[in-house]
Design a binder for these strands. Structure first.
Lengths: 128, 128
DNA sequence: ATAAACTTTAGAGTTAGGTCTAAGTCAATA
DNA sequence: TATTGACTTAGACCTAACTCTAAAGTTTAT
């Protein structure tokens, strides 16, 4: 699969794919004798994982660390698990914050919709 | 209230508070005759709102835009509402992505816990 | 009254995560 | 065969959101 196809499949720019590879998040991807990347099944799976984690804003170095641990074999199992649990915790905290902001936004929009918005103090929601 | 107190109350650095003010997100904050900031009730409310929105990663320029609209009066009501609704939509999409990643992380951790983790292909979850 | 611990400003520096450019190679088409 | 278009690389550049620095003024404690 060419870089263009992968780029379209995952909606990631070609630059980003090469950038992730340079960072060690994916690959090294197989190349044709003339040096053109040819992505294989395992690459696609990895890209999918990375994309999902990046969507959730897990930092590139954390993902890199996980992959490096993975590459160094069974004895890193515990460490990998801890890394994942830690990221899970961080992610949960983020989701909570976002949901709080979402609720605030929703309440504000409700005020606009009901015409009750205070034109002079609409920055904060009345009372909570 | 001094910048130090506000900084501690909201757990935002003093630099960040001054930065937000320079950007027009808060203030201009009242100053003593010698030029020291003295934050008042309305400032604190604004800071709380900004902090909540920044926790949810709403961009500074978007918040700035909202505040500018707010400052220019009643006739911007519709535009403000649209801006909020748009951000709400974006935020919902982000939360969805994060929840998807959260689930993937949870599933992976479960694999580690049940000892079923594939040592050679643990980058992606089996089957879905 | 003098040191320590604040505060101010303008502006430079940092970090993460891409994105773009230039110069070159290669394969397929007109 | 020439040109078009996609690919390669190294490395420069970009943006957002801080964060830090320097030089100066102010307030508090002893």
């Amino acid at each position: 699969m060419t870089i263009k196809e992968v780029s379209e499949k995952f909606n990631l720019s070609k630059d980003t794919l090469r950038f992730y590879e340079k960072k060690g998040l994916i690959g090294p991807v197989k190349k044709t004798k003339s040096g053109i990347r040819d992505y294989e099944g395992q690459d696609l799976k990895r890209i999918e994982f990375i994309k999902c984690m990046r969507n959730a804003e897990l930092p590139i170095d954390v993902l890199k660390k996980y992959i490096d641990l993975y590459k160094s074999g069974k004895e890193t199992k515990e460490e990998r698990k801890k890394l994942l649990e830690n990221q899970q915790k961080i992610l949960k905290a983020k989701i909570d914050k976002m949901q709080k902001a979402y609720k605030l936004l929703t309440d504000k929009i409700d005020l606009y919709n009901s015409g009750k918005i205070d034109e002079y103090l609409d920055i904060s929601i009345k009372n909570n």
